[in-house]
Amino acid sequence: MSFLIEYLPLILFFTVYKFVDIFWATGVLIVASLIQVTHQYFTKGEVAKRHWIFLAIAIILGGMTILFHDEQFIKWKATIVYAILGSALIVSKYLFNKNLVKTALEGVLSSVAEKEQNQNKITLPEKDCDQLNLFWSVLFFFIAALNIYVAYNFSLDFWVNFKVFGLIGLTFVALLFTMFKIQKYLPED
């Protein structure tokens, strides 16, 4: 269910785009993002920072897309989001000495261990976490650049399909690489 809530704005954007147009799809993206943030607030008592960022960018760029009736603004959304994510990984690591990828991975692994009632705390070596942090930051910058390249060199239909399926595909492959990298540190059971 959380997967559906996480990707609901994107799913609705794609669906409405295919049946209506980019401007209606953009409006639905804004409303779905608002619903997503509201749902998270009322079910968890807090909203993840990334959802606030996605919502703000959707409102600003989506609002400009609708106001000026120009799809160029919404095309920049993914580029800005991924550039922010890449920058956050680099800045947190090299300015604040905090590896966000390590924090995220250990949080996920700890919650899995708790669900399986495994009391062993899973820790990942700094070297591997630093490599993964760099990998994800480079990937995010690459996706940011690739999105804007596709947006301006291909049709709107191609860009929407790339945004929905291409970016999810790239992220899935990166997750597989990450899982492969950390699997040797997971408990046997």
Rank of each mutant, 00 (worst) to 15 (best):
T79V: 09
F14L: 15
D130N: 13
F177E: 01
T26Q: 03
S2E: 14
L100V: 02
T171S: 10
D128S: 14
T65Q: 06
L55I: 03
A58S: 13
L10Y: 10
P125D: 10
L132I: 00
Y185S: 10
F154G: 01
G169H: 01
H69P: 09
D128E: 10
L61D: 02
L34D: 02
K18F: 14
A48K: 13
Q183Y: 13
W24E: 08
I5T: 12
F23P: 00
C129D: 01
S111C: 10
H69S: 13
I182K: 05
L167W: 00
E71G: 14
L4G: 05
L146K: 05
F42Q: 15
A56N: 09
S155T: 15
I148G: 06
K93R: 11
S110Q: 13
K75H: 05
L134F: 12
K184L: 11
I143M: 09
F158V: 15
L109G: 07
F154T: 11
F135D: 01
E114T: 01
A113I: 04
K102G: 09
N161T: 02
V164N: 02
V112K: 14
I11E: 01
S137L: 09
V112L: 15
I53G: 07
G27D: 06
A56E: 03
F142C: 04
V112F: 15
N120V: 15
D128G: 10
I74H: 08
G86E: 05
E126K: 08
